[in-house]
Design a protein around this nucleic acid. Structure first.
Lengths: 148, 148
DNA sequence: TGACAAATGCAACAAAGTTGCATTATCATT
DNA sequence: AATGATAATGCAACTTTGTTGCATTTGTCA
């Protein structure tokens, strides 16, 4: 996990953010984790690592990082919010297995979506700031289990 | 609201469902309301109409109607689930104003999404059962307010 | 009408997230 | 290095959204 120290410090510098314990650990966790994490995932991970972090602080820090555009939040069909590092150069969507809850990233050709956003602007007067697109289904493994 | 009686009765007949108070009121409300409603919206509406309906029963009935495919649930960026009448012949998505929370329906050309689903099947082995696509932005009115 | 499954209502619970407030840490400036 | 402004923290209590178990009632069909 050490290898993210540089990255985190450059994020903090770029956004003029103080280096605090929770912020650092949170970024480390999200950079290291391949898939979106919920607040409770994060709290559990910290507990497992015997890092004492406060629930309120984590929620507040997540909000803060969202406002800074460093992370984004998404919904994956359950009642939680999930968070992941925002990668503006590489916007992606998710494939969620309804059975085993496994999440995979998927690249979607955005041009079609952009033209839909343009259509919304023309027809409805809406300016679109972001969109969410997630696919729900069954992964390879769960299809086999289902069909038995 | 009376005009939906026929529709509801045909839904109940088609799905072999008992005609119960909560089920009837719920369908009436969702048919009549132009936009997706959350459980709390629904409970408030009933309260306003002085209809005594039970929270647990409403949640259970919503689940039931989803399992029957009569309604669908969606997420609109906050922590709630929203429900609307499923219209299989006319699948649509939503435009949500981040400021005033107004929701508009939007038709999206589905062919592109279907080809993405096909790609997911080929590349990742996922079979896609449904997708969610919502656009977030500012409606005409809120753009003006923002820019003042 | 009577049987039986389906639906209901209640109270208690659970998970996710929020608020107010007093305290503490960080960091630029001296 | 000391200082002071501002940002971050921790705690407890709270809110919202949704769930569960269980005893009771209702709707439907033979």
């Amino acid at each position: 996990m050490k290898q993210y120290t540089e990255t985190i410090q450059s994020i903090l510098r770029e956004h003029k953010l103080r280096k605090t314990k929770t912020r650092f650990l949170l970024l480390e966790l999200l950079l290291q984790s391949g898939e979106p994490s919920s607040a409770s995932d994060i709290l559990c991970d910290f507990l497992r690592m015997r890092k004492s972090v406060n629930k309120t602080t984590v929620y507040r820090e997540l909000d803060h990082l969202i406002r800074e555009g460093i992370i984004t939040s998404l919904h994956l069909g359950d009642r939680k919010q999930y968070y992941e590092i925002a990668n503006r150069s590489h916007h992606h969507h998710h494939l969620i297995c309804l059975q085993c809850k496994q999440i995979e990233d998927i690249d979607v050709n955005e041009t079609k979506l952009l033209s839909e956003e343009e259509k919304a602007r023309c027809e409805k007067g809406f300016v679109i700031l972001r969109h969410s697109l997630e696919f729900f289904g069954l992964c390879k493994k769960c299809q086999i289990i289902e069909s038995v």
